[in-house]
């Protein structure tokens, strides 16, 4: 997925992290940890034998500009898809690099955000943040590719997942920017006042969602995952107007580590609190 022509190297291996980052990470390596986990999450991570190392982040400001599109045709806008994917990849990879520098086994609670600023027309900032963690036992829990795993699981979900004998491998995503054809005037007038399916739209949305999910699954396969948990599909028009939508499918790829499920039998309760 790398097809842009430009002056600077962008979507191959990311550049060195900014100087500020190295300084900050050095402080963390000396034993201080930072985390945006709540106290509950912090305690639960410790329960499964992990310790937070530090708050890690990666970002990339990407120009997500133009792609010509045919007004009357439903199609994927591949250039934009690439751009959205590359930008998030860059942000995620930088975040992983920070985690790797800290010697982390993985990153939990990853959040992917997109920011728009007035001064960057057609540009958006893609940010990935999370808390890097490391197993206290010293045994490496990195993923199949030898990199720290990423996951958007909360501390509670991470604890529960570990109890079922699974471990996250990576946050996987698939994206597809789709343009939905505008209906011709004739077609619009013809169906006005009727309750009918709009085959154009149906087909377009189907295809777009499938593309996004398939790409996400491909990433999971690459990681050798046995499954994906917490899948969600987000649909946003960003700055392109309502006929162009980005379908983003996100989930956490997991792998089974043992057959032993240590989930204690849950106590059933009826809560009498508000």
């Amino acid at each position: 997925m790398s097809d842009t022509t430009d002056m600077s190297d962008t979507n191959d291996t990311p550049q060195d992290l900014p100087e500020g980052a190295s300084r900050r990470l050095a402080e963390l390596e000396h034993g201080l940890f930072t985390s945006d986990l709540s106290v509950n999450e912090f305690l639960l991570i410790k329960e499964v034998g992990f310790h937070p190392l530090g708050f890690v982040m990666g970002s990339s400001i990407y120009h997500t500009g133009i792609q010509t599109r045919k007004w009357g045709q439903s199609q994927e806008l591949t250039k934009l898809t690439e751009a959205m994917y590359n930008a998030r990849e860059l942000a995620m990879t930088r975040m992983e690099e920070e985690a790797a520098e800290l010697g982390a086994d993985g990153v939990v609670g990853v959040r992917l955000d997109v920011n728009y600023y007035e001064w960057g027309k057609d540009a958006a900032e893609f940010i990935a943040v999370g808390t890097a963690v490391k197993a206290e036992s010293g045994v490496s829990h990195r993923n199949k590719l030898g990199k720290p795993f990423t996951s958007d699981l909360s501390g509670q979900d991470f604890w529960t997942l570990m109890q079922t004998g699974h471990i996250p491998q990576g946050l996987v995503m698939g994206t597809c920017v789709y343009h939905i054809a505008h209906r011709g005037l004739g077609a619009t007038l013809g169906s006005a006042g009727q309750n009918v399916e709009l085959p154009n739209f149906t087909q377009a949305l189907y295809e777009a969602r499938e593309l996004a999910m398939t790409r996400m699954q491909d990433e999971a396969t690459e990681l050798g995952a046995s499954g994906i948990v917490g899948v969600r599909l987000e649909e946003k028009s960003h700055q392109w107007g309502s006929h162009t939508i980005e379908f983003l499918s996100l989930g956490t790829a997991v792998v089974k580590t043992s057959d032993e499920v240590t989930l204690p039998k849950p106590t059933t309760i009826i809560s009498l609190d508000n």
């Binding site: 305690l43 639960l44 509670q156 604890w159 529960t160 849950p266 106590t267």
Partner: peptide, 11 residues
């Protein structure tokens, strides 16, 4: 004073 409450995780 009550005894220390039991920490729980909801499923």
């Amino acid at each position: 004073p009550m005894p220390a409450p039991v920490p729980t995780v909801r499923l």
